[in-house]
Design a protein around this nucleic acid. Sequence first.
DNA 1: GGTCCGATGATCTGTTTCGGACGGTGTGAG
DNA 2: CTCACACCGTCCGAAACAGATCATCGGACC
Lengths: 173, 173
Amino acid sequence: MSSEHRLSPTSYIVLALIDAAGEATPYDLKQVVATTLGNFWSLPHAQIYAEPERLAEAGYLSERRERGGRRRRHYKLTAPGKKALRLWLAEPTGEMAELRDPGMLKLFLGGDPKQLAEAQLSTHRRRLTELEELAERIGGHVSTGFLLTLRAGIGHEREWVRFWDLVEQGEEP
Amino acid sequence: MSSEHRLSPTSYIVLALIDAAGEATPYDLKQVVATTLGNFWSLPHAQIYAEPERLAEAGYLSERRERGGRRRRHYKLTAPGKKALRLWLAEPTGEMAELRDPGMLKLFLGGDPKQLAEAQLSTHRRRLTELEELAERIGGHVSTGFLLTLRAGIGHEREWVRFWDLVEQGEEP
DNA sequence: GGTCCGATGATCTGTTTCGGACGGTGTGAG
DNA sequence: CTCACACCGTCCGAAACAGATCATCGGACC
């Protein structure tokens, strides 16, 4: 059991969310992801169904399946699952994301800066508003992690707006 | 020829870089990507070899292959290739990237904020310095696109440093 | 009580991407 | 001349991905 399984970020997302819930079905996870994590890390729902299956096979999760009807699968962390999660969380990471922004790509490859700026500004401004409203709405009753990531998201949106604004003005950002 | 081919961002990267070079081998592209685009958009080299092949099949590139030795393939844009590129560049995009940052993920899932901040700060500070030095080094003799994306990258690194700095202080970012 | 409908929940399928191992080719130092 | 190392290219299995499709449920309405 679990001799040499490479766990991906997706694996740890699933482990952590199931751990937080105690027990959960893939659909439960889907809901949580959609309202929280999904704000900065996308996960196609197909994965959310596939990953627990793999993790159960590898011994990190235990599965209980309903007999009739929807035959939902309910998952719980096993001892190895808890341990793997604990270890991963305890080890901070120095890795960082790349920007990988479609607007930047076009800019780099020769797209017209002002036109791009106009389009990008409008989506980034909208997104910024959304996030700010979300932050307002949830107030304090939410995990520190959620709060902080939300603030990080807002910070970056502000930076995007600042950047594209300057590009639109034709100034050096 | 080229009836209904989906062109991906990777396709346009290849088209644009080959267009800029006039003619290029996949290896040439690999070099360019490594020193420029690679700063914000990663591309496994296997793709850099596979994509021109597909594009040539679809009629967007013409291929000239060396007879002996390394049998390098040299690619050039065809008329449809130039057109596809021009159209794509002319149409600004409103899409934007997600953060998808491994540090954020750990933070969200329950990692210790201060420990994470320490690790993240050190990589982001190093990265920021690298980018600033790069900006210094290249001065003005470089395309507008490169300049602007570089500045965007610097802006975001500064934002990361600001964010994690506050997290480390235990303050609200 | 039956049946219709939208919401809920789960699965399947074909393609791409990814990362990294591996394999050839050229070249210059000794 | 040959060996080491840089240069260049291909291959492969495992995930990720998008998105269509299928199956079940709870109630509204007759």
